Structures are given as structure tokens and as C-alpha cells.
Computed example of a mutant assay.
Amino acid sequence: MTLTEQINQDIKTAMKAKDKETLKVIRMLKAALQKEAIDQAGDLTADQELTIINREMKQRRDAMAEFAAANRQDLVADLEQEIAIVEKYLPTQLSEAEVKAKLEEIIAATGANSAKDFGKVMGQAMAQMKGQVDGNVVNKLVKELLA
């Protein structure tokens, strides 16, 4: 079952359960997927679907950080609920220790040894761990490892 099919099933389930909050978030995800499919003039691949869901997750995390900085706890709580719903459609997230271990492998494989190689390591890391980790975490760890 593709991600789009799963989202369609979950919309039906949320409608039957009269879960308005979940339904709202899932419909936003579906709209983003449909918009991209129209822009592509065809069906989306699983990788493209994952990229779109990751983009939606990043938007919510960024907004949550801004709301927290503005001391808007009511909006932060709403976004935490949305993030919990969106996470169901992402692959299992890697722990920081797992990310660090993978980064060390990538650094060894690419021969990176200074901050000049940051882009090369980031490119490899994000390609290998796509959807499994937040880019900010990878960025921070790569800087630490190459320092």
C-alpha cells in the first residue's frame, strides 16, 4: 500500500470516528501530495511521497520552534498534536547515537577530515538517511565530527 493509499484509508477511519483534528491534518497531507502529483503531471513515487511528508513535518517543527520562542504555548500544543499525526507516515526515526554511527561510517568512506568536506558528508548522509532523521540533527553532528 502506498503512502497516498494509506492516507486515504486513514481519512475514512477518521471520518467514521468523527476525529476532526486528525482528519484536518491528514487532509492537509493529502492536499500536499495531490498538489505535487498535479505539478508532476503523474503519479508520485514512494520517494517523492516521503519527501513531501518530510517537508510537511519540517514546516510544523519550524513553526513550533517559532511559537515556543514567542511564548505561545497554546499553538505549540496544537502543533505537537499535528506532529504526532504526521510522524505516523514517516519511517522510524533514528536515535542520535545511530545517526552518529552512520555519520562516522560516511566520513570514513568519503575520507572527509575537515570542515571543507562538510557538503560532501551532508549530501551522502541525507541521501542514506532520508526521512529517518531531521536535517538539523545531522547538520549539528557532522559539524561536531568534522571539527
Rank of each mutant, 00 (worst) to 15 (best):
Q34H: 13
G131E: 05
K100Y: 03
G131A: 04
A77Y: 07
I83V: 04
V76D: 08
A70T: 01
I53R: 08
L90K: 06
A63D: 09
K20H: 07
A69L: 02
K30Q: 15
G42H: 06
A115T: 05
K30E: 15
M57G: 08
M28H: 13
Q59N: 14
E21Q: 09
G42Q: 04
M15W: 05
A31V: 04
V138N: 08
D10W: 08
M1D: 12
A31I: 03
T92A: 15
V86I: 09
I38C: 09
F118T: 01
D78C: 00
A69P: 01
R55Q: 14
V133T: 04
A68T: 03
M129E: 06
E56M: 07
D78H: 04
A127P: 00
Q81M: 08
K16L: 14
G135R: 10
G135K: 11
E144I: 02
A32H: 15
N71P: 01
D117T: 00
K16S: 13
T51C: 06
Q73R: 07
I83S: 08
V86E: 05
A77E: 12
A125Y: 04
G42N: 06
E5P: 05
M15H: 12
N136V: 03
A84Q: 08
M64Y: 06
R60H: 10
M57E: 09
L29W: 09
M15D: 15
K58L: 14
M57F: 07
E56D: 07
K88P: 05
D78A: 08
A31Q: 15
T4S: 12
D39V: 03
N139E: 15
A32G: 07
L146T: 02
R61L: 14
K12N: 14
A65Y: 06
A127Q: 13
L3P: 05
T4H: 11
D62I: 08
A46S: 12
D117C: 00
G131Q: 05
M129S: 05
G123I: 00
D43R: 07
N136Q: 13
D43I: 04
A112H: 02
Q81L: 08
D62C: 05
K100L: 01
G123F: 03
E98Q: 13
I53V: 13
E104G: 01
E80Y: 02
E104L: 02
M1P: 10
V137S: 10
L94E: 09
E105V: 01
I11F: 09
R72S: 07
D39Q: 15
D78V: 04
G131V: 01
E66L: 07
Q9A: 14
E56F: 11
L79E: 02
A77S: 11
K20D: 14
M126N: 09
E82Q: 13
R61D: 11
D43L: 10
I38P: 08
Q73K: 09
L146N: 04
E105Q: 07
Q81F: 11
M28R: 11
M15K: 14
A68V: 00
R72Y: 03
Q34P: 05
A32S: 13
V25H: 09
